[in-house]
Amino acid sequence: MTLTNEFFQQLESLFPKAADSPWYVYAALVFQANDRMELISSTWRYVQSTTSKAEDQIVKARKMREALLKASVLVGFPKGINACTTLRKALLADSPEIESELDKDSSLRQHLSRSEKDARGMDFFSKIYAQHTDRVLQNMSVASGGDLSEFAINAVYGDLMAEESRLNAKETGLLEFLACYATGGSVWAQAKGHMYGSHNLGNGKAEIQGAVKICDTIEETLDIKVNRAPAENWSWLAKAEKW
């Protein structure tokens, strides 16, 4: 399916307007979650066509790549590989000079020590879950012999999510929420936790509802069916109306 510029303009209009609006990372995430990798390429082409300065294009390409990487732990690592590979192929085809710059990048995470990962992971996790932090960690720990909480703090948060140089904490928190919302089904509780977590990281009604509308619009346009039943499992979404 080919999506028009008008469709991407519609998606862009659903998110709060700003010079550095990250709406496109949330659109790309929804395509990634639903295995519509070719539409990640379409998203990049639209972003490039509406971004005049080459240096701004590079910033957005890095931000998009970082979002696909971070989303991989939430929607599936193989999808993360395919999404990042798809973006790189699109850049090579349409923006080789930009991909040449991105190919010079080294890992943002390779020099982190274990203690650094643990410290920044706990800090980021605590900002999301606030007063519920200990309970959430304890629940994960007892469900897994201690490994889920260990993995979450050191790897998911310390290594991956807490890196803020390309996708900041506010943007990352909203990404986590939207990844769970886009998945639907049994992860409604995680979606709920991350909606509140994204609010703790600075997202308000406009950002949360804008991200949801981007997801809903893509699902409707592509006829994607996501299980969000029973409705009472998702009734907490109304809380964002008051933010």
Rank of each mutant, 00 (worst) to 15 (best):
F15Y: 15
A182L: 03
L160M: 10
I224M: 04
S72V: 03
L174S: 04
Y24M: 07
Y181K: 08
A155R: 11
E163C: 04
G210P: 08
L3Y: 09
M64C: 10
P22A: 07
L108K: 04
A179H: 03
K192W: 06
Q209T: 13
L148R: 11
S198Q: 06
G76T: 02
L178M: 05
G210S: 07
D94W: 03
V75A: 05
D123P: 05
S100E: 14
A162T: 06
Q131R: 10
S115P: 00
T50Y: 05
F177S: 00
K104T: 14
M161T: 08
D118R: 13
Q131C: 11
N200Y: 00
K205G: 02
L112S: 06
R109V: 15
G121M: 05
V156M: 09
H132I: 13
T2K: 15
N154G: 11
A229E: 14
L237M: 10
K127I: 14
E101L: 08
Y129R: 13
R228L: 02
S165N: 12
G76F: 03
A143W: 00
V30F: 03
R36I: 03
A229V: 12
G185R: 08
L87S: 01
K170M: 11
K89A: 09
C215H: 08
S21R: 04
H132A: 15
Q138W: 04
D147Q: 14
H132F: 09
D216Q: 13
K127Y: 01
D159H: 08
M140I: 04
H194F: 08
I40W: 05
S149W: 06
S113D: 11
A169D: 15
D123Q: 12
L222E: 03
A182D: 01
E38M: 10
S165L: 07
A18T: 14
R114H: 09
G184P: 00
P22D: 13
A231F: 07
S198F: 01
V142T: 11
E99T: 13
A189W: 07
A231Y: 06
N227P: 01
W243A: 06
V187K: 01
S107N: 05
T86K: 12
G146I: 06
T2E: 14
L39R: 15
G80A: 09
V73K: 12
L29K: 02
V212G: 04
R228P: 00
L91P: 01
K70N: 09
N203P: 07
P96E: 02
K213L: 11
S21P: 07
K170R: 13
A152E: 02
L137F: 03
